[in-house]
């Protein structure tokens, strides 16, 4: 391989990587918006955009309700719904549909959240964790609600 061929090969590799990266970033949706009232948005990759029923949510999204409410069903059949003035970060969601092993970590920064756990918790109790400014919840199942006042405690 001469130097030009080598440079071309490296260049091709870089282009391939650059093309591959967005594909890797376009990960599978982890949940879908099922209910919504009022104004609800998602913060994703540093930008905020409005959410509507049918939209998908992804790992690392932050869901923000202003005057609205929103309900989401996740890939493991767990469900979360937020009251107004809430802020929820979907920090980590891994789920293997065959084994139902997984992990679901989220943070309620402020507001009110109602939860029903799903297959991740049924397979592995406490594999779902929710952090608030004041507490850390390990979920064994199935339905509960949590509020956070938004001030650090």
């Amino acid at each position: 391989m001469d130097i030009m061929t080598a440079k071309f090969a490296v260049c091709c590799f870089c282009v391939a990587m650059a093309l591959a990266t967005p594909c890797a970033a376009a990960e599978a949706a982890i949940g879908q918006i099922k209910t919504e009232t009022g104004t609800v948005s998602v913060e994703r990759g540093g930008a905020a955009k409005p959410l509507t029923i049918g939209d998908h949510v992804f790992e690392a999204d932050t869901i923000v309700t202003a005057d609205g409410t929103v309900g989401i069903t996740f890939a493991d059949n767990s469900m979360m719904s937020l009251g107004p003035n809430s802020r929820l970060s979907l920090d980590q969601f891994k789920f293997d549909t065959t084994t139902q092993n997984g992990i679901f970590n989220s943070s309620l920064k402020k507001g009110t959240l109602a939860v029903k756990s799903g297959q991740i918790v049924r397979q592995t109790p406490e594999a779902m964790r929710i952090r608030t400014p004041a507490a850390l919840l390990g979920v064994r199942g199935t339905e509960f609600a949590v509020s956070a006042d938004g001030k650090s405690q």
Binding site: S117, A135, L136, L137, T142, E143, F144, A145
Partner: peptide, 26 residues
């Protein structure tokens, strides 16, 4: 506030709450 709700299927596994170094099971 953290509160366990009655489950439609009757199954309540509960929630383990860690707060300020204390741990309790609801």
């Amino acid at each position: 506030m953290i509160v366990v709700l009655p489950a439609a299927d009757g199954h309540i596994g509960g929630v383990v709450v860690e707060t300020g170094g204390n741990k309790m099971v609801l």
